[in-house]
Design a protein around this nucleic acid. Sequence first.
DNA 1: CAAATGATTCGCT
DNA 2: GCGAATCATTTGG
Length: 206
Amino acid sequence: MKKLERDFYHRDSLIVAKELLGKRLVHEIDGKRIVAKIVETEAYMGVMDKAAHSYGGRRTPRVEVMYGEAGHSYVFMIYGMYYCFNVVTQEVGIPQAVLIRGVEPVEGLQEMAQHRFQKQYEHLTKSQRKNLTNGPGKLCKALFIDKKQNGVDLCGDLLYIEEGEAENFTVTASKRIGIDYAEEAKDFLWRFYIDKNPWVSVIDKE
DNA sequence: CAAATGATTCGCT
DNA sequence: GCGAATCATTTGG
């Protein structure tokens, strides 16, 4: 499959967030490919987005990578125990990113199960299989993503995103998750997911 | 089953 | 010091 190039990321977060659905996130560990299909994303629109770490043009060491070149990773620790993986978008100087919230395991299930539950994939309970990668903190654990991957170039050979299989799916837009402090910005429909996919972290009611 | 709660580190003020 | 783009576990109906 073809690796996504710089130009793909060099656009608005809202566009990139939608187009990332169905793509494959690949992490190569010791020459082994861990692959997962992206099924849920959220756009963070930078300066005018109260939910974004870069809101109002805040520029601290942590968010610096978002001001840099598109197509790099932005990984941050949350609640003291989990990581969240983002893709930096837009041109240099515009601090936008797309958070990956849910993925569907494709290759390397054994490695994912081992790292997340210290168990063989076959020994996972039904609930553990479902919970392997259906959330931002969970998928980072399963895909071996932590602080060391912050700032990595996704146009490189270790961590990158490639085209997925051709398929048809319905994209649902909804409110973002876990940003109740963001006032009016919490109601923007900037979360996107593949309708009816079981690996989406939070499903909206009818 | 849904809802409440505790865990635990780091970046920022 | 405070609180966070979360999650697993416990509690109660």
